[in-house]
């Protein structure tokens, strides 16, 4: 029976010239990285997939410099986030909406549309709020890991996450406590 390889094993095999090991790493991380970028792009799947592709190509050329201080997932999220920031800085293609605007998808949300709903709701958040609430709640990262990705102080991270959760809860019409 084949046992799943660890990230370190796959990285070693790739650095020794095994391209299949790289493909295995892409398969392992493509889903969370693409979903992370879809949240940042607030539903622009084409942009998110372009950025995800760029992220893995950067991994391809830079994996030899990966020191393993943080996990591979954290490292990839950092690359994805920076690629996304660079793109936003040069293209300004991000969509934002006012707080009091309720997306139409909210009315059909109880079905299987939670992904679309979340991506639509992300348009109500600033980029930092999108980033930090996604890494925290969706990606399950600790505040320290988020600080590793964003280089932001812990206090700033907590405040962005709380503000984002409050906005999202308000959009959902929920009274749940977010702090």
């Amino acid at each position: 029976m084949l046992t799943p390889k660890t990230d370190s094993e796959l990285i070693s095999r790739f650095l020794a010239g095994d391209q299949r090991a790289f493909a295995d790493l892409v398969r392992r991380y493509q889903s969370p990285i693409r979903q992370f970028l879809r949240r940042l792009a607030a539903g622009d799947h084409a942009l998110a997939d372009d950025m995800a592709q760029e992220t893995f190509l950067k991994m391809f050329t830079s994996l030899s410099s990966f020191r393993g201080d943080a996990g591979l997932s954290t490292w990839l999220h950092t690359i994805a986030y920076r690629s996304f920031l660079r793109h936003v800085a040069s293209h300004s293609r991000l969509e934002f909406v006012d707080d009091d605007y309720m997306p139409e998808v909210m009315s059909v949300a109880p079905t299987a549309m939670s992904d679309i709903l979340v991506e639509q709701m992300m348009k109500h958040l600033s980029l930092n709020e999108r980033l930090m609430v996604t890494l925290s709640v969706s990606g399950g990262m600790s505040h320290a890991e988020i600080a590793e990705v964003t280089q932001a102080p812990l206090g700033t991270i907590k405040s962005h996450i709380n503000r984002a959760k409050k906005k999202l809860a308000r959009l959902l019409g929920s009274e749940e406590e977010c702090i």
Binding site: Q35, P110, V137, K165, L168
Partner: peptide, 11 residues
């Protein structure tokens, strides 16, 4: 019938 926020945001 919406799931809680944390569940909704999860991948």
């Amino acid at each position: 019938d919406l799931p809680p926020l944390d569940k909704l945001l999860a991948y």
